[in-house]
């Protein structure tokens, strides 16, 4: 996946570069992406290191996308979908949930702590929740520091 994270001039596993932590937010078009729009409109700021990637549905987020994010140097991956019952595609969000549940132990086993991957339900009207969730996630990632896989150029 071309996440555009790694910038040649920043390569390496320099722990001092906390400010350069990368958080990718894979969000669903209908709910969470709209919430992000709303957050923008309401002038709610979320941390600058978060990059939003829009999917039609969290149910189309392949486990491999998540792996790619981490191997490509992401320090945190945030997934935002519709609340259960709200999915535009009925159960996409629930599929995302079980997939994430399944991939967390894989990530944890290979040195990517589960806190680096978070799933939140954020409805289209919940701009505020988007801000809160992304902020708190970014804070957790800041505390964890750079990912072990950062700069390994494994993809």
């Amino acid at each position: 996946m071309n996440t555009g994270i790694s910038r040649p001039e920043e390569a390496g596993t320099d722990n001092s570069r906390h400010k350069e932590l990368d958080v990718l937010a894979l969000v669903c078009n209908w709910c969470t992406y709209t919430a992000a729009d709303l957050a923008g409109v309401t002038r709610l700021h979320y941390p600058a290191q978060v990059r939003l990637i829009r999917f039609m549905c969290t149910g189309m987020i392949d486990m491999r996308y998540i792996l790619s994010c981490f191997l490509d140097g992401a320090d945190g991956v945030f997934i935002g979908g519709c609340h259960p019952g709200d999915c535009h595609y009925l159960t996409g969000n629930l599929k995302a949930r079980v997939r994430i549940k399944g991939i967390r132990p894989v990530l944890e086993s290979v040195g990517i702590p589960p806190q680096r991957l978070r799933l939140e339900w954020i409805g289209a009207s919940e701009g505020k929740k988007l801000q809160e969730d992304l902020t708190s996630f970014a804070r957790v990632i800041e505390q964890l520091g750079p990912s072990d896989y950062k700069g390994m150029n494994l993809v």
Binding site: S6, R64, L67, L71, V106, G151, N153, V155
Partner: peptide, 26 residues
Amino acid sequence: RAGRTGGIRLPAGMTMFHLTRLAHMA
């Protein structure tokens, strides 16, 4: 990507291969 750190191993993506297999079949 090759320009980032000392070139890139070919075929690329072997870590991805093993992790994918883990993700799919663990």
